[in-house]
Design a protein around this nucleic acid. Structure first.
Lengths: 219, 219
DNA sequence: TCATGATCGATTGTTGACAATTTACAAAGC
DNA sequence: GCTTTGTAAATTGTCAACAATCGATCATGA
């Protein structure tokens, strides 16, 4: 039995909370590409001064979720299809394979236990037909792999890319037919990660990422 | 003959100037990985309030040049060699090839004229043995290719990666023997871009990027 | 008619003061 | 001596007022 332990207080900075709020609004589709983001308006709605808002907007810009031009306007970013296919997907694959190749030794039981928890959670989301939560778990799964790599810059690029993929996803997808397939795919990924060779992992991984991202983007 | 044209006034925001200053200090090696960056100190030295400084630091973090932890410290980032070889170089290649494949039609005479100016400038820098300026031109050359692509996010990732490559470069290189080779390489790149097939371009490009980045990193 | 200049409202950029947090270090208790 | 608890200095986070900039609108004059 584990000894009792307090959970760390979620004492996020205002800036971080603003980032989360806006990010959620975008990824839930409440804010759409082209929508304007005005500092004063947001600041009043959130009861936060403009300072943290400004910093949050800069961060969101770096995350690829918004674009801004000086003294002019800030708005939710848009993503073209060719960027998804020719840039985001290949680079994403490269990043994940880098993390895997570089850290095969670090994939111990603890690693796979945590991964399994994510997959189990995915299954629940799929059964309930909760698409948003399923996507969140999907991302958690791959982020768990990325986290093997110490370089925080790797994660930074990766999440920027995933953000943009999602941006395109929420714009173009209406319904996703087979939620169960997503779960099964990830079970297979976990399996090959545990037992497969690097080459085999790369094959499966490439298929999965192209398949999934395309599935989300072209339907 | 081109019509006369004024250069746009460099009326940069304070934030942008702070970014440039700190970036230069890092890329010139005046600030080294691990060096602490304190808001108040910088603010006093530059005679600018802390606001723009803070925003600049956030931007530099997104550019991969510094790392920070809340309420704690902000310092110049470090880059590991395996990140350079296995991540930065391959992703960089992917990005540049994306820009090239996507925009072959846009490479008109104007495009190559501007490219030639950069190469000429490079030659001067090489003759004068000005390594820093040569590197700057090198980056301008590739940035010129990247600029073909409208998606600003492409450039954003790319320059982050180049920043980190340079970060590693200035740490590890003492002298670069053959500056002239860099110039000749880029002349060859320009040539193949003008006349070669995609496959041929990709081959040459891959060799160049791996060669150059490695040259800088392993000597 | 149309280029130029003036003005205004909306929005972003900048500032200096104040609040919150962390770390290091000294004091107190065992 | 060792751990725990209080305190102070350094640093970052937040705020609200002020300044600068932009686009739209309208007036002016050749």
């Amino acid at each position: 039995m584990e000894p009792f332990q307090f959970k760390s207080q979620e004492n996020l900075s205002l800036r971080q909370r603003v980032i989360n709020d806006i990010k959620n609004a975008i990824l839930h589709g409440h804010l759409k590409p082209g929508d304007k983001l005005k500092e004063l308006e947001i600041s009043q709605q959130m009861s936060v001064s403009r300072g943290p808002i400004r910093e949050a907007l800069r961060d969101l810009e770096a995350m690829g979720l918004i674009v801004s031009s000086p003294y002019r306007e800030t708005m939710v970013a848009d993503v073209r299809k060719d960027e998804v296919v020719d840039l985001l997907i290949p680079v994403r694959l490269q990043l994940e394979m880098f993390a895997i190749k570089q850290n095969q030794l670090k994939m111990d039981d603890t690693f796979f236990d945590k991964m399994k928890i994510i997959v189990d959670h995915m299954k629940i989301a799929a059964d309930q037909g909760d698409l948003y939560e399923l996507v969140e778990d999907d991302i958690r799964f791959h982020e768990h792999v990325l986290a093997l790599e110490n370089s925080s810059y790797t994660t930074q690029i990766w999440s920027g890319i995933v953000n943009r993929l999602r941006l395109h996803f929420i714009k173009n997808t209406s319904r996703l037919t087979d939620l169960q397939k997503v779960v099964n795919d990830h079970i297979a990924l976990m399996e090959v990660l545990r037992t497969g060779t690097i080459d085999r992992i790369e094959t499966i991984w490439a298929t999965h990422i192209q398949d999934e991202d395309c599935l989300l983007c072209f339907e």
